[in-house]
Design a protein around this nucleic acid. Sequence first.
DNA 1: CGAGCAATTGACCGGCGTCAATGGGCGTGG
DNA 2: CCACGCCCATTGACGCCGGTCAATTGCTCG
Lengths: 250, 250
Amino acid sequence: MTALPRRSAPHPFVRKVESVALFTLTEDERAALCALPMQVAQFDAYRDIVREGDRPARCFAVLDGFVSTYKTTLSGKRQIAAFHVPGDVPDIQSLHLKLLDNSISSIGPCRVGFVQHDAMRALFQAHPRIGDVFWRISLIDAALVRQWILNTGRREAYPRMAHLFCEVMTRLDVVGLAPERTCSLPMTQHELADALGITPVHVNRTLGDLTEAGLITLRSRRLTVHDWDRLTAIAEFDPTYLHLGCRDSE
Amino acid sequence: MTALPRRSAPHPFVRKVESVALFTLTEDERAALCALPMQVAQFDAYRDIVREGDRPARCFAVLDGFVSTYKTTLSGKRQIAAFHVPGDVPDIQSLHLKLLDNSISSIGPCRVGFVQHDAMRALFQAHPRIGDVFWRISLIDAALVRQWILNTGRREAYPRMAHLFCEVMTRLDVVGLAPERTCSLPMTQHELADALGITPVHVNRTLGDLTEAGLITLRSRRLTVHDWDRLTAIAEFDPTYLHLGCRDSE
DNA sequence: CGAGCAATTGACCGGCGTCAATGGGCGTGG
DNA sequence: CCACGCCCATTGACGCCGGTCAATTGCTCG
């Protein structure tokens, strides 16, 4: 990890909060969010950003790249429970759970912004509605994990992988990172395996099947979906669980 | 579901909040919790209490019995994402996510207590620390689901079932419902299957294996663990993720 | 150009699913 | 009090999805 000088770019929390809130931010609230001091850091690929057992005094937002939440068994098997895309705050839970129960690592190289818990807590005290939005954010994260369980527990490898691609593509599309159903997917097949709960070898076979079927292409870390309708049908993908912004339907 | 007259028993939220909070409640806070109006209802076994897609205006606490949070695929396969024991508030998320993304049903017959969202929100406004505790409760629930994913994704049926039993026994012990490593387990093998992501037939075989190994007995809806050390070893069970109350370690 | 990791492929195997039949416990009705 | 029906549990045979092992190829970067 390399510390970089603090930047004055538009604060990523503003965008995230605005996309999740069910109300419009006041100028005051927006200003308070922008005033959050954030320390930007860069990570190489496949580095732990925080580890299970840590007691962090800050949480972080993903600025660029991808990050994964994972746990491991004592015997070393690894299971990824969630991917996080730019704008997400993967360890928001650390605000209220001192002891981290999962690790979070970079997938490709990535940039993240750290914010001290104290600063967040002060913000929530001054602006309770913002605190509620972050609570909501953490609940949406939990909803994704529940869907992930349904996926690993009750779908075979083929539709399971299809579902993962549907989710990633949809979430990236929301933040403008999936034009033309194409997006960056910097993870190796080994990491896909850890996300899907299968072996890397079988990832390769399943990936081949999806490709042969003309559904997707995954080459040099880029994923393209050729037939979105068929892919979502195979995956039985219903994006409701993502709790995307259509405010009246939320 | 049958509506019962309101009871004046000690409010279950008090106990739950006290067990999860990292501080001691003031008299004021305790009184406010006790003043929460709650409507008690009784459910038969295997009834949905709330359904995916609902927009509830209240949430509920489990008073007696067990309930399960589950989702289903379009093709009808079912996956249980969590069990809830007396004292839990399984749909706390509905406070901030209008649209429920999972169903919750009773396992055995059970009693639950409904509390209007408005009442909860008023409480949180008057006592922000209590709001924080409920946030913490929802984060702990999320931690359990992440562990559940590791379990279904990266363990075979035998240790997976062992792990589930370890978790249930530990959580019931916390609320005094597992004396002598024995507890009620009112679910059928079919529901165990839906929790573990395997088939009922294989549940039966695995259950037989655990029994033959002298680890457990499961008869007439009662689970007994005969060799806790060996069971936890097989399950690689580490209760840290449950975020139990040892306050200094949290 | 060589080192090292990621991807690919084939052969084989085993855990778990599927199908189907049997047995057992319990509540209901005769 | 017994008979019936229903659901749950149990058991066996068989097949397949996905795991394991291992060899080869390809890519990336120093």
